[in-house]
Measured scan of single mutants.
Amino acid sequence: QVALSRTQVCGILREELFQGDAFHQSDTHIFIIMGASGDLAKKKIYPTIWWLFRDGLLPENTFIVGYARSRLTVADIRKQSEPFFKATPEEKLKLEDFFARNSYVAGQYDDAASYQRLNSHMNALHLGSQANRLFYLALPPTVYEAVTKNIHESCMSQIGWNRIIVEKPFGRDLQSSDRLSNHISSLFREDQIYRIDHYLGKEMVQNLMVLRFANRIFGPIWNRDNIACVILTFKEPFGTEGRGGYFDEFGIIRDVMQNHLLQMLCLVAMEKPASTNSDDVRDEKVKVLKCISEVQANNVVLGQYVGNPDGEGEATKGYLDDPTVPRGSTTATFAAVVLYVENERWDGVPFILRCGKALNERKAEVRLQFHDVAGDIFHQQCKRNELVIRVQPNEAVYTKMMTKKPGMFFNPEESELDLTYGNRYKNVKLPDAYERLILDVFCGSQMHFVRSDELREAWRIFTPLLHQIELEKPKPIPYIYGSRGPTEADELMKRVGFQYEGTYKWVNPHKL
């Protein structure tokens, strides 16, 4: 086992960053958080920038500027975001240094004079007029057009580079997404736009490419001749908990499936790229999406959770019991969808996408189930092999396979070949997804960000279904809070070829 401390991990990262040409360590950078008073800024962006600063992973002359409508001070920003920093008493001095680099400007999102004030403020910072500028839009999409237009007109660096990070949702359907994309691309070049999907920053999602293309053993079996089906799962054990009003506007397909799960599907299904260059990788992902037809209604199961009468606390409440959810809402909190990649490698292999709230566990994984062994000599005792990439929690890679049961006879039983990170790298604290992705933006690497043509294809696949749901308002199937979801989803999976045995229990190697 390799035991690495946080300091050692960050030392390795620093070495990698400083050796590259793309990370300008000594240049002045300004990180501007648009929507600095909001939840995302408070819980994710400010803490992430602090962790990067604490670990010495930001360029040395980096300033952080918050911008929002609320009249706040840096002290206010500190008060609301610091509880999420997880700072230790030993880091007190470092924390003071961090907040000394912070400033805040209040202004409207659609007022040109406010942006001119913001620009004057940035120019007044040390070497601010020639600094590289990175704008993070932690804002609702309704203000994107006004904000990007004003940034472009008043706040661009004339000497350094300018980059803009856009948070999902990128529209509600193909038409609104196209409108937003066309607007942003009329102001910024594609190499300046970073559409963030934080799932692409997760260690195991990034590991998929290495697993596939750096190991000879997987190449020959990664196709329709050997793989019976692919299941991509995202499960949350909690409901909307008072935030249903926002969720109800989008629903589970827009929230998770059309982005996170579809991105994971691309990494499983794509061909080997010409290189690890950002556009070479994204070219292959677009090719996969172009091979997927629009979702067919007979390959869809929609569910909505109801309270568990035997549960406790939140578990007793259904989705419609959330006071922020519109009365009688038919918005799905669970969806199972089957897609097919219609190309030579994957023809006929079902890709089953499942996601839901208020389920029995927290889990995100990719599961490849292989065909049955031909010419069975073990009297149907063999179960199908599976390769599982567990994204969260407890990152893991393992192969479910058959071995001989101890004893006199040739009785096979299920076991696993474990390729888990935790076994080799004991207690290594890896940077989280937002840390990686923000560092990628500083480096100018777009590999783990969504390109406009990729986004367009993703919406093309799901828009007809979303429009049909909005028009017909089908009643989702009720499922109990804390269950596996509607049984109809299991029946759909069985119908397209997935075999669920229920006889195997994964042993978490992190707890051995």
Rank of each mutant, 00 (worst) to 15 (best):
D255H: 03
D255R: 04
V256M: 08
M257F: 09
M257L: 12
M257I: 10
Q258Y: 03
Q258M: 00
N259T: 04
N259P: 01
L261A: 10
L261Q: 08
L262K: 05
Q263L: 02
M264R: 04
M264W: 01
M264P: 00
L265S: 05
L265G: 04
L265Y: 02
C266V: 07
C266I: 05
V268R: 02
M270I: 07
E271I: 01
E271R: 06
E271C: 08
K272R: 13
A274R: 14
T276N: 11
T276I: 08
N277E: 12
N277K: 10
D279S: 11
D279N: 10
D280R: 10
D280V: 13
R282G: 00
R282F: 01
D283H: 04
D283G: 11
D283S: 09
D283A: 04
E284S: 10
E284Y: 07
K285H: 00
V286G: 09
V286K: 12
V288Y: 03
V288C: 11
V288H: 00
L289H: 06
L289I: 12
L289E: 03
K290W: 05
I292S: 06
S293D: 10
S293A: 11
E294D: 14
Q296M: 11
A297I: 14
N299D: 13
N299A: 11
N299M: 12
V300D: 00
V300Q: 08
V300Y: 13
L302M: 14
G303K: 01
Q304F: 05
Q304M: 06
Y305E: 00
V306Y: 12
G307V: 05
N308K: 15
P309M: 13
P309F: 10
P309A: 14
D310F: 14
D310K: 14
D310H: 13
D310S: 14
D310L: 14
G311T: 11
G311M: 13
E312P: 10
E312V: 13
G313R: 11
G313A: 14
G313I: 12
E314V: 11
E314W: 11
A315C: 13
T316K: 14
T316V: 10
K317D: 14
K317C: 13
L320Y: 07
D321I: 04
P323W: 13
P323I: 14
P323N: 15
T324R: 09
R327E: 12
G328A: 10
G328M: 13
S329M: 00
S329I: 00
T330P: 12
T331W: 03
T331S: 12
T331G: 05
A332R: 03
T333R: 03
F334K: 06
F334L: 07
F334G: 00
A335I: 05
A336T: 15
A336K: 06
A336S: 15
A336H: 08
V337D: 06
V337F: 08
L339R: 00
L339V: 13
Y340C: 09
Y340A: 10
Y340L: 09
Y340M: 14
V341E: 00
E344S: 12
R345H: 13
W346G: 01
W346T: 01
W346N: 00
W346I: 02
D347W: 09
G348M: 04
G348F: 05
V349L: 02
V349F: 04
V349P: 03
V349K: 00
V349S: 03
V349G: 04
P350A: 00
P350E: 02
P350T: 01
F351G: 04
I352N: 00
I352M: 07
I352E: 00
L353E: 01
L353N: 05
R354W: 03
C355A: 13
C355Q: 04
G356Y: 02
G356E: 02
K357G: 01
A358N: 02
L359N: 03
L359W: 02
N360D: 15
N360P: 06
K363T: 07
K363L: 06
K363V: 05
E365G: 04
V366S: 00
V366D: 04
V366Q: 01
Q369W: 01
F370H: 05
D376Y: 06
D376F: 07
F378P: 07
Q380N: 12
Q380W: 10
Q381P: 14
C382K: 13
K383V: 15
R384K: 13
R384C: 08
N385Q: 07
N385D: 12
N385H: 03
N385K: 03
L387N: 03
L387I: 06
L387S: 02
V388Y: 02
I389P: 02
I389R: 02
R390F: 04
R390G: 05
Q392V: 03
P393C: 06
N394R: 08
N394E: 15
E395D: 15
A396P: 02
V397Y: 07
V397P: 04
V397G: 01
Y398C: 00
Y398K: 01
T399M: 12
K400E: 04
M401G: 00
M401C: 12
M402L: 14
T403V: 08
K404C: 01
K404A: 03
K404M: 05
K404T: 05
K405G: 07
P406D: 01
P406T: 06
P406V: 08
G407Q: 08
M408F: 11
M408D: 05
F409S: 15
F410P: 14
N411I: 13
E413G: 09
E414D: 10
E414L: 13
S415P: 02
S415M: 09
S415C: 10
E416D: 15
D418E: 07
L419H: 04
Y421F: 09
G422V: 13
G422H: 11
G422Q: 11
G422S: 15
G422C: 13
N423F: 11
N423R: 10
R424Y: 06
R424A: 06
R424L: 00
R424H: 03
Y425A: 06
V428D: 15
V428N: 13
V428G: 15
K429I: 14
P431H: 11
P431L: 06
D432Q: 11
D432K: 10
A433G: 05
E435T: 11
L437D: 05
L437E: 05
L439A: 12
L439H: 12
L439K: 10
L439Q: 06
D440L: 02
C443M: 11
G444I: 05
Q446P: 04
H448V: 01
H448K: 12
H448R: 10
H448C: 05
H448T: 06
F449S: 02
F449P: 03
V450E: 04
V450Y: 02
R451T: 04
R451D: 03
S452M: 04
D453F: 00
D453V: 01
E454T: 02
E454D: 06
L455C: 07
R456M: 08
R456S: 14
R456D: 05
A458Y: 02
W459K: 02
R460A: 07
T463R: 00
P464T: 10
P464K: 10
P464Y: 07
L465S: 08
L465C: 09
H467P: 07
I469M: 14
E470A: 14
L471Y: 08
L471V: 15
E472K: 13
E472L: 14
E472G: 14
K473A: 10
P474K: 14
P474W: 11
K475S: 11
P476N: 08
P476M: 08
P476R: 00
I477E: 07
P478F: 09
Y479H: 00
Y479D: 02
Y481P: 05
G482W: 05
S483V: 06
S483N: 09
R484P: 04
P486R: 02
T487C: 13
T487H: 14
T487D: 15
E488M: 13
E488K: 10
A489S: 14
A489R: 05
D490V: 08
E491W: 12
E491F: 09
M493R: 07
K494F: 13
K494M: 15
R495Q: 12
R495W: 10
F498R: 07
F498W: 14
Q499K: 15
Y500E: 01
Y500V: 07
E501L: 06
G502A: 12
G502T: 10
T503M: 14
Y504K: 06
W506Y: 12
V507L: 11
